[in-house]
């Protein structure tokens, strides 16, 4: 084995892969939530559709999106490898344990939270990404130019209460995954410092675990309330 594969196969190297892919996904979340805020514009989806067009046609964005798909797959595979390895490190379990006395729940259930997220990602991509790329999306015309009207797909999807419920629950899982994952990612890279760690922990809790999941969850809820006529 070369030093590179040897490093990446070590317990620490595997965690570095988790950390790099996980933190990259975190930066993606910022872009994704910011862009989708356009759903809240009361313009029948024009800004959102123009944004979707840009995101599927800009070469830089398209390149980054392949990096994103790879990251999700690598993160999930590495999570599986690590979880299995970690479970094998204790072949005989304790008869009685009290883990809540020494560690937060989220930190001990990253695998379960991640699995919920993976199922969510598949469902989410089937509904929007697949329809946008390979399915049939109605067309809209703005200033004489044709756009895929993804907004209509969004409206249709979020008019079903159970679909909205899945989104809200998944975003709760995202919050719990990131309340531990964000700060853990930095620890894995050895980035821990009196001056910066408090800031990173603040960002991890208030931005990545609360604000971003809450904004994401607000989108389907808003669209649903609009659909049933509670808000205009």
């Amino acid at each position: 084995m070369s030093w590179v594969t040897q490093t990446l196969a070590s317990s620490l190297g595997r965690k570095v892969i988790m950390s790099l892919t996980g933190l990259f996904l975190c930066t993606f979340l910022i872009v994704h939530v910011a862009g989708n805020l356009q759903l809240f514009k009361g313009d029948e989806g024009r800004a959102f559709n123009e944004y979707s067009y840009f995101m599927t046609h800009n070469p830089v964005i398209m390149t980054v999106s392949y990096l994103l798909y790879t990251s999700i797959i690598v993160h999930a595979l590495m999570a599986l490898i690590l979880t299995r390895h970690n479970q094998a490190s204790r072949p005989v379990k304790y008869a009685y344990t009290k883990p809540e006395a020494n560690s937060p729940w989220s930190s001990r259930n990253m695998g379960i939270l991640g699995t919920i997220l993976l199922i969510f990602i598949v469902l989410h991509m089937r509904t929007f990404w697949y329809e946008m790329h390979f399915g049939s999306v109605p067309m809209a015309e703005y200033d004489g130019k044709e756009y895929k009207d993804l907004y209509k797909t969004v409206v249709a999807a979020f008019s079903q209460w159970w679909y909205v419920a899945i989104y809200v629950l998944s975003m709760a899982a995202l919050g719990f995954h990131l309340v531990h994952g964000f700060k853990s990612g930095f620890q894995t890279m050895g980035l821990r410092h009196k001056k910066y760690t408090p800031l990173l922990e603040f960002l991890g809790v208030y931005v990545f675990a609360i604000l971003i999941p809450a904004l994401f969850a607000a989108m389907p809820v808003y669209m649903f309330l609009k659909h049933v006529g509670i808000i205009g």
């Binding site: 620490l12 965690k15 531990h180």
Partner: peptide
């Protein structure tokens, strides 16, 4: 055959000498 670190912090809480997680960050570095 030890497992990898998930940064749960259980070790430091249960350590009789309360060794800090800062040292794990240094080891990683």
């Amino acid at each position: 055959g030890f497992g990898a670190c998930s940064f749960t912090g259980a070790c430091s809480v249960e350590c009789p000498k309360s060794i800090s997680l800062d040292h794990i960050a240094r080891l990683n570095r």
